[in-house]
Design a protein around this nucleic acid. Structure first.
Length: 276
DNA sequence: GTCCATGTTCTTTA
DNA sequence: CTAAAGAACATGGA
């Protein structure tokens, strides 16, 4: 479910309820979702107040009032829900955190993840990860060019690599490449300056629009309040194999690149840049 | 039963 | 060395 826009949407729904709230108790239902394994996560969080909740890449970070941090990564199927502690927990609920807000309201944050590719990481003071690339919304065209320089990878693969640029996933890479008019199998060193400028702009446009639409709900993604996104309704290529391109009418193709489904229009995204 | 899935990481191959 | 390909992780839906 979660790429940058979905994770940002979860943060946007979580933050107003959880920022400033006190953690009164917590329960780890499945301890194998915790990293480092065997850490006393509950002891680290109970009695702490959450200073802020924020997103970095696809991670949801919680900054505690003692300077420590933890983050939740949703993996493929993870969800976070704010619910009352008396509501029966959904199947595959792995973690419960009970909060008291500054207005005295009691609420429970739940981490649910059937496939368990996601999890919870206790990271202490130092929450930034040197292996993560820059945030797409803060990255200039020149910056992106520098990140793509010195490699001959397929642009699709490079953009999925979180060390190159952090937060894009399979949906938004396909969508951004279509908006930029770039074929997914283009080698990064073959991208022209103009193409990189278009790509940089397309990434930002697509992500901002997707956040405005509260992300894409393909199967069961919902935000912390249980609300679905609707950006999937305006996907231009992702999940549209064999349908007409919304720009030119050509049939959308699906190929496999780097083991991932890749959707594109071969007219709007020619292998070679359109010659003048 | 089959194939596929919004992610990441490790191993193998070239 | 780089990078591509494949598998692995675990569950559920079509």
């Amino acid at each position: 479910m979660p790429e940058l826009p979905e994770v940002q949407t979860v943060v946007n729904t979580l933050s107003p309820r959880v920022s400033g709230s006190l953690i009164v108790s917590g329960t780890v239902i499945r301890s194998d979702i915790l990293t480092p394994e065997g850490c006393d996560f509950i002891a680290g969080i109970v009695g702490r107040r959450v200073n802020r909740v924020f997103r970095r890449a696809k991670r949801i970070l919680f900054a505690l009032d003692d300077g420590n941090h933890f983050y939740i990564h949703l993996g493929m199927s993870g969800r976070i829900r704010i619910e009352s502690s008396d509501a029966p927990p959904a199947k595959h609920t792995h973690l419960l955190i009970d909060f008291r807000t500054q207005t005295g309201e009691e609420l429970q944050v739940r981490f649910i993840d059937p496939r368990r590719f996601g999890g919870v990481w206790w990271v202490g003071q130092d929450w930034e990860d040197p292996n993560l690339g820059p945030e797409p919304l803060d990255l200039s065209a020149t910056g992106l060019a520098a990140r793509l320089d010195g490699t001959k990878r397929f642009v699709k693969c490079a953009l999925l690599d979180q060390a190159v640029i952090a937060g894009l996933g399979n949906i938004y890479v396909d969508e951004a490449l279509h908006v930029a008019g770039i074929h997914p199998l283009t080698r990064t060193h073959r991208l022209t300056r103009e193409q990189i400028a278009a790509l940089s702009k397309a990434i930002k446009t697509v992500l901002k629009r997707a956040i405005k639409h509260r992300g894409s709900t393909l199967r069961d993604y919902v935000d912390a309040d249980g609300v679905t996104g609707d950006f999937q309704k305006i996907h231009r290529v992702y999940g549209r194999e064999d349908q007409a391109c919304l720009s030119c009418g050509e049939t959308i193709k699906r190929i496999v690149v780097g083991g991932r489904s890749t959707h594109f229009c071969r007219v709007c995204q020619p292998r070679k840049p359109a010659s003048a």
